[in-house]
């Protein structure tokens, strides 16, 4: 049974089509990267999978259940692009991560030993256990991102969905983050992530999906950075050779079906 199935999905904002005719299938244990340029619709794709953006057409199925009727949210761990804008009311790393237990525990039951244990394990996984009592506002951007991953891991999900988890994250945090994802995948977890740059997580990826202008332009192994296939005999001339050396994945438009 597929973990996520998207079929013929379409999304539009204020009459402008953002996604059109998207088909996607994620199998248990797969690590799927959704790549694409800014504004290609890749974030919208995972937001529509999560039900945060309404579909205009098509269907999304989660763990075999149509998304509208899906209620086992504890099976999904969501990692947003960044921590919500600070409001001034302090919150500790431990408190933020503890929110990740709510899906599993329900809102009426007070947190118990199992919850505290899960929070500590998740923070250990991302290498931030020593910061558990610190206010999140004192953390670096990369550490805040790791806190959000710990929050998702604390719920012990089967599927992890991450929206640009490595954007603007320092190298140390990227490595800690890749390591946490590797352990999660090794334990049988399924991962769906949106990325602009893969960096240290590249070896984990089983399948890459490239979104270009709201359509799936490519699906398969992680595309080589465009600079490598722009060789003699290849009639694709890319204008951003410098950027590609920095391992920025762009839509391999030369492999796109003409439509």
């Amino acid at each position: 049974m597929s973990v996520v199935t998207v079929s013929h999905a379409a999304v539009s904002y204020a009459g402008r089509a953002v996604l059109q005719d998207i088909d996607l299938d994620v199998q248990p244990g797969q690590v799927v990267a959704i790549l694409g340029a800014n504004g290609s619709g890749k974030s919208t794709l995972i937001r529509s999978v999560l039900g945060l953006v309404p579909l205009e057409a098509g269907t999304v199925t989660l763990f075999g259940t149509p998304q509208r009727r899906f209620r086992q949210w504890a099976r999904i761990g969501y990692v947003p692009q960044r921590m919500g804008a600070g409001s001034g009311v302090p919150a500790t790393v431990g408190e933020v991560v503890a929110s990740g237990r709510l899906a599993r525990r329900g809102i009426f039951r007070p947190s118990g030993a199992a919850d505290r244990e899960a929070v500590r394990t998740a923070l250990t996984d991302v290498g931030l256990l020593d910061r558990i009592a610190d206010p999140v506002s004192t953390l670096s951007g990369g550490q805040q991102q790791r806190t959000l991953i710990a929050r998702a891991l604390a719920g012990r999900p089967d599927l992890l969905i991450l929206d640009e988890p490595t954007a603007g994250v320092d190298a140390a945090s990227q490595d800690a983050f890749a390591e946490a994802l590797r352990r999660f995948a090794q334990a049988g977890g399924t991962i769906m992530l949106v990325a602009h740059e893969l960096g240290p997580i590249e070896p984990l990826i089983d399948k890459a999906v490239v979104v270009h202008h709201g359509r799936i332009a490519y699906e398969g192994a992680v595309p080589e950075p465009a600079g490598h296939h722009a060789e003699p005999g290849h009639d694709h001339v890319h204008p951003h050779a410098e950027a590609e050396r920095a391992r920025i994945c762009v839509a391999p438009t030369d492999r796109m079906p003409a439509n």
Binding site: L50, L52, A74, P80, G84, S87, V96, S99, I107
Partner: peptide, 27 residues
């Protein structure tokens, strides 16, 4: 006090609370 964690989650990150299956609107 009783719903502290749920209310904290909703006020802190409403989208995350929604994806956690919390009754965001009711809260």
């Amino acid at each position: 006090l009783g719903l502290r964690q749920a209310l904290f989650a909703v006020c802190n990150d409403e989208e995350y609370a929604r994806v956690s299956g919390l009754p965001v609107r009711t809260l």
